[in-house]
Nucleic acid binder design. Structure first.
Lengths: 202, 202
DNA sequence: ATTTGATTTAAACAAATGTTTAATCCAAAT
DNA sequence: ATTTGGATTAAACATTTGTTTAAATCAAAT
């Protein structure tokens, strides 16, 4: 259904995206891509100038979409607490569907760090976001707001990245893992918000 | 100094390790490796049967060492609070020196998930660790200890993984980033331990 | 019906790459 | 001094892989 009515360029992009995600750039061949897309090999270079260019296109759109969610979320009409909950649950849902996304993005991003950052304009997105102003206000003295933002991202995203080690180490099956991620939709915001309360020094 | 007195096999392993870490398996060529090690191309296949085998060897030793630290740490004679602090500061120091390690391990681990896990015996290491027994005892009702362990790893490791995005997004240079990681040696244990205290619901 | 231009195909090309071979070197043992 | 066996080298081999070419196909416009 949804594959057949795509035009050729999109069939290639979709197939390539899946393969890049699964095996990375270096281990994916143009013949793999053409085969998976069900199109002639030459069409990969016909529609996208090269494998590298195809990769850049896909990477850009992927990261764009990933950050885009953030942009909207951070500026809309919810309370601070709601924003936190939405952040965690939105990204948890996304990562449940596409658990390979973070590693793919982060592992390949190092090859074009400055270029990537510039094109995406992450700096503006983050600095202009209301969420950060609100976070900075509520932040305990002496603790940089970025610390807390790191914690929020870390606790939300890392379990998916570390799943192969953690879940095996803890001896849990996939079902149990997903269940825990569901629990974390509530737990992570609680932990995060408690970090904003003045600590009882120990 | 330290490079010249290595025997050939170790020169190859060391060079290959750096290259795999930097560019991944697919983008690293055997000629790159031989050249970086300063040895003849054929010696790569002479000492290690193939590029794949060389990779597996390096990967296994790397992960082994990474987990090994954990094993010692988790069972020695420190108090629970000390173990937490040691966990964070040890891995922070390690990641300051080798920030590419987590992505390398995690991105390539998916290709051999079951085999990897079995050989490492992560399951035993984790389950037998005193740290986990202590953690389970102190864990608030209804919250699985693995949740909290995830948080500890996440807050310690993820900032290094996400550095390319986070530090650019926040507009900070490398020096500032390292400074923050130093701060986190104290902060992460505080946050982590506060998660063990009964929450004031709200 | 013809033309036009984009799309698709099979085939080939050129370079890169993992691997092997056969000869050479070299140090230790006899 | 000779021998022996591992270590090293230059060269070649066989595939793989990204890319290109030139012909064929097809749909829309004239």
């Amino acid at each position: 259904m949804s594959e057949k009515d795509l035009d050729t360029a999109n069939k290639i992009k979709q197939a390539a995206s899946a393969l890049f995600l699964e095996k990375g750039f270096g281990r994916t061949t143009t013949r793999d891509i053409a085969s998976a897309a069900g199109v002639n090999l030459a069409l990969v270079n016909y529609y996208f100038r090269s494998k590298e260019e195809l990769f850049k296109t896909i990477m850009m759109e992927t990261v764009q979409g990933f950050i885009g969610q953030l942009h909207v979320l951070m500026n809309d009409q919810h309370t601070f607490e709601e924003k936190v909950e939405l952040f965690v649950s939105n990204y948890t849902e996304l990562l449940k569907k596409r658990p390979d996304l973070p590693i793919f993005m982060l592992s390949e991003i190092r090859n074009h760090p400055e270029e990537m950052a510039e094109r995406l304009g992450i700096e503006q997105i983050i600095k202009e976001a209301k969420f950060f102003q609100e976070l900075a206000q509520r932040c305990p003295d002496g603790i940089h707001p970025v610390h807390l933002f790191m914690n929020l991202i870390s606790m939300t995203v890392f379990p998916f990245i570390g799943k192969p080690i953690i879940s095996v180490g803890a001896g849990m099956d996939n079902e149990t893992f997903i269940l825990m991620m569901e629990q974390r939709k509530q737990l992570v915001p609680q932990w995060f918000l408690s970090m904003l309360k003045p600590q009882t020094e120990g």
